[in-house]
């Protein structure tokens, strides 16, 4: 037999993938949620099974050791008691899993906030009536620093002085996944109606975005929108 069997290699691969995602990655960036780690482990398992069952020989290399382990064929001495220990451990693990699944959770139910829920129909087809001139953008910047920057930050990155306690955090306009994906009419809706204007899927109950229609005119809002795109170095989504 050349080198370790496929079953062993597969086990090592899974362990390495897991360790890399769970322990190494957080050294460089934010830790991954477990859901994603399970997903990647699942894909790695598919890979091992697919590759391992391509031919009769590889199937033997993948499943042979597993079957031999299960049947206890040709296993003696220390390995024998290790086998019995594993066989005894598996049902216990299943039992533990069941127990921990049933025990009252100390984790609140997962929240699934849709970051960009669909806007109401009457806001979909609007376009910015204010011409995009340097003066208007400049005015918009003034409004932005007065009304928006405390939370969304002077650098349009959602990092304003008042942002720390809010959950969800204020939007980061310099992230290409926010305003760059949206049309100006969408921003008009969000600014005008604020957090309380969100639909069910927006999980509205936490957004601290004010309903600016009570304080700002439409004109000012359109100018703020232009200033946000200009300041964050983004362009609104268009269909032309």
């Amino acid at each position: 037999m050349r080198g370790p069997s496929l079953a062993v290699k597969g086990g090592i691969l899974l362990a390495v993938v897991f360790a890399a995602l769970k322990f190494v990655l957080p050294l460089f960036t934010a830790p991954l949620p477990m859901s994603l780690i399970w997903l990647y482990l699942f894909l790695a398992t598919i890979g091992i099974v697919v590759y391992g069952t391509l031919s009769a020989e590889s199937t033997e290399a993948l499943l042979g050791p597993v079957f031999r382990f299960l049947s206890g064929e040709g296993i003696g001495g220390m390995a024998k008691s290790a086998r019995l220990a594993v066989l005894a451990l598996v049902p216990l693990l299943v039992g533990w899993q069941t127990y921990s699944g049933l025990v009252p959770s100390s984790q609140p139910p997962a929240e699934n906030r849709t970051i960009h829920p669909a806007p109401p129909g009457e806001f979909v087809g609007l376009s910015n009536p204010v011409p995009n001139t340097p003066e208007n953008v400049m005015q918009g910047r003034g409004f932005y620093s007065a009304f928006c920057s405390p939370c969304h930050g002077a650098k349009f990155n959602g990092n304003g002085a008042a942002s720390d306690g809010f959950n969800p955090p204020p939007a980061n306009f310099s992230d290409p996944g926010t305003i760059a994906m949206l049309q100006e009419s969408y921003l008009f809706w969000r600014i005008k109606k604020g957090g309380v204007g969100l639909s069910v899927e927006g999980h509205p109950w936490k957004s601290a975005m004010p309903r600016w229609e009570v304080e700002l005119s439409d004109d000012m809002i359109w100018k703020i929108i232009m200033a946000e795109y200009a300041g964050a170095g983004q362009k609104p989504r268009t269909w032309e």
């Binding site: 129909g121 087809g125 376009s127 032309e240």
Partner: peptide, 26 residues
């Protein structure tokens, strides 16, 4: 609301876009 809803105006007309099928109403 009527323009974009019950009136069905926005099925054809746009405001400030040439994407519509009918005259733009900007």
């Amino acid at each position: 609301k009527i323009f974009f809803g019950k009136g069905q105006c926005a099925l054809c007309h746009t405001i400030g876009s040439s994407e519509g099928r009918c005259p733009d109403l900007k």
